[in-house]
Nucleic acid binder design. Structure first.
Length: 422
RNA sequence: GGAGAGAUGGUCGAGUUGGUUUAAGGCACCGGUCUUGAAAACCGGCGUAGGUGCAAGCCUACCCUGGGUUCGAAUCCCAGUCUCUCCGCCA
């Protein structure tokens, strides 16, 4: 949610910024609703003040034994008018709210306009592995090595699901442990949240109402949906709270599977486990004071990169153009990992600064010590990491001529073998 | 799933036969006086939001949520949510 004051005071500036990510922006109607609303509020509040004043007089009039009938009927009439005007105000409130709730975040000044094609590679780490033999693709590798069972996964969950088995499950579990251990030692608090969330959680995160179709909803539940990312849970952890300035930043991470409908997605060219309806992810999250959020974003990207580096995998970092960022986010960097067989870099982490956008939706504030006033916090999230693209990258980048996979040394604590063999 | 109890500002808590409570009071917290410093004591401040005003301020709303009754609702009525206790069922 944007601050409507920004639009009142400088509609052109906001419009210009939003046009970096949207086709068209028009505040004319919004501003007329807003003006009308404020006029009506002044009117009705004056009436309410009058009603309060007179109502307070009535007991003493009665006490004196006089007849208050004149006042009663006048106030009855006034109350009816107030009720009617209040209805109009709340209708306007609703319209304004719906309009505001549908607006995405304002892209940061240094974020380029346009969609994917304007994403900028800002860093490259390592080199594309060269093979002295004919490398296999990950679908073949994980199948040959019995790491992933696609057929039985689809038998159980339908198209877009797979099952980890044997060493594949161990490898997955080792990766998650590696992430978790790293985050704990960096001072992040481990959260295991509910996987079923209420509608409000989706709203605060900025996924609802616009992207309700992207999540699975529980048909016979109490209106919950299954989380598409742990971000949705973590951003709601402090919803409707006023935090203390000196307890910020709050640093959390969570492990959950992520469930996504991926309706209308480009699955056809993405074999294997590049895009599924369920994947595992460890998610980092920070609540910060506004002036520290850029620094926090750097920290999050750095942490995600360090995890990939630890695995010894070639990747690059891209700064996303405005329209490629999620609606709630003002700035996003993706860490993209090299998938040799596809000749392409695929996202394994997305690190974003939401600024105060989610905080406004979720009413998440802190009290500034120097002023005693409340302000909205900034919220940031970053995957650390998602495994569904990582595992293909690992098996493809670290495959050897005999078809086995070299196990990264950071994982040996949990996966006690040098290579994964058939 | 059943029964009971409850929900008031950061926290505890008064108010619940509707109208001198404009939500008392304690604690915590902040500022000040005193002190070499601290504590204690004393003085003052101290919920959130919307509107209006250059400002001081003023007005309005909010006592779990949403409706309703009334000139007037923390207080009465209806529906719901959550928490606690107990019982049942279940991994």
């Amino acid at each position: 949610m944007l601050d409507i004051n920004l639009i009142r005071e400088n509609p052109e500036k906001v419009k210009k910024a939003l046009l970096k990510r949207m086709g068209s922006v028009d505040f004319t109607e919004l501003l007329s609703w807003d003006t009308k609303r404020r006029e009506l509020i002044v009117e009705t509040e004056n009436m309410k003040a009058e009603r309060n004043r007179v109502s307070k007089l009535i007991p003493s009039i009665k006490k004196e034994g006089k007849d208050a009938g004149v006042y009663l009927s006048a106030m009855k009439k006034l109350s009816d008018t107030i009720t009617e005007r209040d209805k109009t105000v709340s209708e306007l409130d609703g319209r304004i709210h719906d309009f505001m709730a549908a607006l995405p975040n304002i892209p940061a000044d240094d974020v380029l306009a346009g969609d994917k094609e304007n994403n900028k590679v800002v860093r490259i780490w390592g080199d594309k592995p060269e093979f002295s033999f004919k490398p296999k693709d990950h679908v073949q590798l994980v199948t040959d090595l019995h790491l992933i069972d696609y057929e039985r996964g689809a038998k159980l969950g339908g198209n877009g699901f797979w099952a980890y088995r044997g060493n594949g499950a161990l490898l997955e579990w080792a990766l998650l442990n590696y992430f978790i251990e790293t985050h704990i030692s960096d001072g992040y608090e481990f959260i295991l949240p509910p996987h079923l969330l209420t509608w409000n959680c989706g709203y605060t995160a900025g996924q609802f109402p616009k992207f309700e179709e992207d999540v699975y909803r529980i048909e016979n539940g109490e209106g919950q949906f299954i989380l598409p990312t742990a971000e949705t849970a973590l951003v709601n952890f402090h919803r409707d709270e006023i935090l203390k300035e000196d307890e910020l930043p709050k640093k959390y991470f969570a492990f959950t599977p992520c469930y996504r409908k991926e309706a209308g997605s480009y699955r056809s060219d993405e074999r294997g486990m590049i895009r599924g309806h369920q994947f595992n992810k460890v998610e980092m999250f920070q609540y910060t004071v506004p002036e520290d959020s850029e620094k926090a974003l750097d920290e999050l990207i750095g942490k995600a990169e360090k995890l990939v580096q630890g695995l010894g995998l070639h990747y690059r970092v891209s700064k996303l153009a405005a329209a490629d960022c999620s609606a709630s986010m003002g700035k996003t960097f993706d860490i993209e990992i090299w998938i040799p067989s596809m000749n392409i870099y695929k996202e394994v982490s997305s690190a974003s600064n939401g600024y105060d956008y989610q905080a406004r939706r979720g009413n998440i504030r802190f009290r500034r010590i120097s002023t005693g006033k409340t302000e909205y916090v900034h919220t940031l999230n970053a995957s650390g990491l998602a495994t569904s693209r990582l595992l293909p990258a690992i098996v493809e980048q670290l495959q050897q001529e005999d078809g086995s996979i070299k196990v990264p040394s950071v994982l040996k604590k949990w996966l006690n073998m040098d290579t994964i063999k058939a």
